[in-house]
Amino acid sequence: MVWSQWVLDRVIILMVGVAYLFIWVQVTLSHYRQNFHNKFMWGPVILALVISFVSIMSTLLNSKGWYTITHICFWLGVIQGLIGFLFHIKGVRKRVGGLALRNFLTGPPVMMPLLFSIISIFGLTAIYGG
């Protein structure tokens, strides 16, 4: 493997895969802490691991088929993040006082699902820009 021959989009997709591995750890710990009380909490846990694996494999194998799967997974990541954002806003709103600042500080992290989407958008930028 000669790194100097890698194009920028391939390196970005690899880094997105590594980022999703870290996101997987955080999402798993956060949702485990809440005892996965909603079945939809499993979505980002499973998808983050899948996106990480597929992204890393597509860069290491440099295959058109893997890039196609990666492309699909990144779009699923965008959708998953937006759905998670809605669930987190709903979780904040359920707390006593509704959408008060203190509930944003102590409730579900509203920005985390958006980060999930943004990382996928970063990967899609590499795919479409490359």
Rank of each mutant, 00 (worst) to 15 (best):
M1H: 13
V2I: 14
W3Y: 12
W3F: 13
Q5S: 15
Q5A: 14
W6C: 11
L8Y: 11
D9S: 12
D9T: 08
D9M: 02
R10M: 10
V11W: 00
V11I: 08
V11P: 00
I12A: 02
I13N: 12
V16L: 06
A19N: 03
Y20D: 08
L21H: 00
L21Y: 01
I23N: 04
W24C: 06
V25I: 14
Q26N: 13
V27T: 13
V27Y: 09
T28V: 08
T28F: 15
H31K: 07
H31C: 08
Y32V: 03
Y32Q: 10
Q34L: 13
N35R: 14
F36H: 09
H37Q: 13
K39T: 09
K39C: 06
F40R: 06
M41F: 02
M41R: 00
M41Q: 15
M41Y: 01
W42E: 00
G43E: 11
V45A: 04
V45M: 12
V45K: 06
I46P: 02
I46K: 05
A48I: 07
A48G: 11
L49R: 12
V50P: 04
V50K: 04
V50G: 05
F53T: 10
V54S: 04
I56Y: 02
I56M: 10
I56F: 03
M57W: 09
M57S: 09
M57Y: 12
S58Q: 12
S58G: 10
T59P: 04
T59C: 14
L61R: 15
S63W: 15
K64R: 13
K64T: 12
K64W: 08
K64D: 15
G65W: 14
Y67K: 10
T68Q: 07
T68G: 00
T68P: 00
T68D: 05
I69K: 00
I69R: 00
T70Y: 00
H71K: 05
F74E: 11
F74G: 04
L76M: 15
I79W: 08
Q80R: 03
G81C: 04
G81K: 05
G81S: 04
L82S: 04
I83Y: 14
I83L: 15
G84P: 08
F85Y: 14
F85L: 14
L86D: 04
F87D: 14
F87T: 11
H88E: 10
H88A: 14
I89T: 10
I89S: 06
K90S: 12
K90P: 01
G91Q: 08
V92K: 08
V96L: 04
V96C: 00
G98T: 00
L99K: 00
A100T: 01
A100R: 01
L101E: 04
N103E: 07
T106E: 15
T106N: 14
T106H: 13
G107T: 08
G107D: 08
G107N: 10
G107H: 09
P109G: 02
V110I: 13
M111I: 10
M111R: 11
M111N: 11
P113K: 06
P113A: 05
L115I: 07
L115Q: 05
F116D: 02
I119Y: 02
I121Y: 10
F122P: 00
F122R: 02
G123Q: 09
L124E: 07
L124A: 07
T125K: 07
A126P: 11
Y128L: 10
Y128P: 01
G130V: 10
G130L: 09
